[in-house]
């Protein structure tokens, strides 16, 4: 009586032997790159990366050629080049994160979030003063900018994809062109069109307006792209049930792209949260915490970093700069996580 139990397997996956062969290839490539480094005049990290690229690509090409012939080798060529591209792309990201965290964490202290710089200078001991003004300013300005941007950008995207009006083409062109506007131009525009002639005072609101100019094209373009992914069938199904166009858009089209719209918003925030130039021009920067967006200068996190870097020179100011960068990075991370969480939850439902 032998009962054979059938186990689920994955016969298409590489065997242990094949896997160790791959590992061996990598080792050979590393060794070869070191030899290359020694033989040729290449030196330094950059030289090693270049040598490693050539040895990795050629070792995997040859190994694959011997194993399975020319087509498989050509196939593996593109695989190894794209793997290498990923490797290159990750280097700066990891490097930035590592540097900011390693240099910034020492500047972190609780006072950073409860005090502002109104009674400290950038060269004061690190325990004095903090980033409250900068954090409040960034939150208020980015929040307001989001408030202005969302309706304008989403409605623009809906005009382009749903109404498809007579002006859709020129507007699409303008939106694309606008996404290339340098941030300093947005700042100067608000400065010359509103701050000087109308309000006569720099404020957080002006900063938010300048940020909106930068945000609108990013959000509108991304929103347009996700809206274009919605099959026309769905729109027709809504209309064929006797709905008006806007009812269909609100009940069928927009709910179907909710997570895509969240992505558009994230990209918009990412576009402006690190902007320094327009803030400097129209919200004036500022060391004191200011909750009032319509009056008085308002700081922001990038402004805090810029300020500490430019006016300093001491060890404390350098530490402030790194701590400021770390806080900015953390905020971006927090915002992205929240947005991703919201969109994944709305998808599950």
């Amino acid at each position: 009586m032998s009962t054979t139990t059938i186990k689920p397997g994955r016969p298409w996956e590489p065997t242990a032997k094949e896997r160790s062969q791959k590992g061996l290839n990598l080792l050979i490539a590393v060794a070869l790159s070191l030899v290359l480094l020694f033989v040729t005049g290449l030196n330094g990290k950059l030289g090693w990366v270049a040598a490693f690229f050539f040895s990795y690509v050629s070792v995997s090409f040859i190994a694959e050629y011997r194993r399975a012939g020319k087509p498989a080798a050509q196939d593996s060529l593109l695989t190894s080049i794209s793997r290498f591209a990923i490797f290159l792309a990750i280097i700066p990201i990891v490097s930035i994160l590592a540097t900011v965290i390693s240099k910034g964490w020492r500047g972190l202290h609780w006072g950073l979030f409860t005090q502002d710089m109104s009674e400290a200078t950038v060269n004061s001991p690190i325990q004095e003063g903090g980033m409250l003004a900068a954090i409040v300013g960034t939150l208020i300005m980015v929040g307001l900018a989001l408030l202005f941007t969302l309706p304008i950008a989403i409605l623009t995207a809906l005009y382009l994809t749903e109404i498809k009006g007579k002006f859709a083409r020129p507007i699409r062109f303008l939106v694309q062109a606008m996404s290339g506007v340098p941030s300093i131009v947005a700042g100067l525009f608000i400065l010359s069109s509103i701050v000087y002639p109308v309000t006569g005072e720099r404020s957080g609101l002006m900063g938010a307006l300048a940020l909106s100019i930068l945000m609108i094209p990013t959000v509108a373009r991304t929103a347009e792209e996700v809206l274009l992914l919605i099959p026309n069938d769905l729109r027709e199904a809504g209309l064929a049930l006797g709905a008006t166009q806007w009812r269909t858009v609100a009940m069928v089209v927009v709910p179907a792209v909710k997570s895509g719209l969240v992505t558009a918003i994230i990209l918009g925030i990412a576009r402006v949260i690190g902007e320094t130039a327009p803030i400097l021009l129209v919200s004036g920067g500022g060391d004191a915490t200011n909750f009032n967006p319509v009056s008085g200068p308002m700081g922001s996190i990038p402004f805090y970093v810029w300020n500490a870097f430019l006016l300093g020179g001491s060890e404390e100011s350098t530490q402030r700069t790194w701590a400021g960068l770390l806080v900015l990075l953390l905020w971006v991370l927090i915002l992205f996580t929240i947005a991703r969480y919201i969109s994944s939850r709305s998808q599950k439902r």
Binding site: D233, L234, E236, A237, A240, V252, P255, A256, K258
Partner: peptide, 9 residues
């Protein structure tokens, strides 16, 4: 319609 098109959301 030809293709089933229930509302996905």
């Amino acid at each position: 319609f030809q293709k089933p098109n229930p509302f996905p959301s």
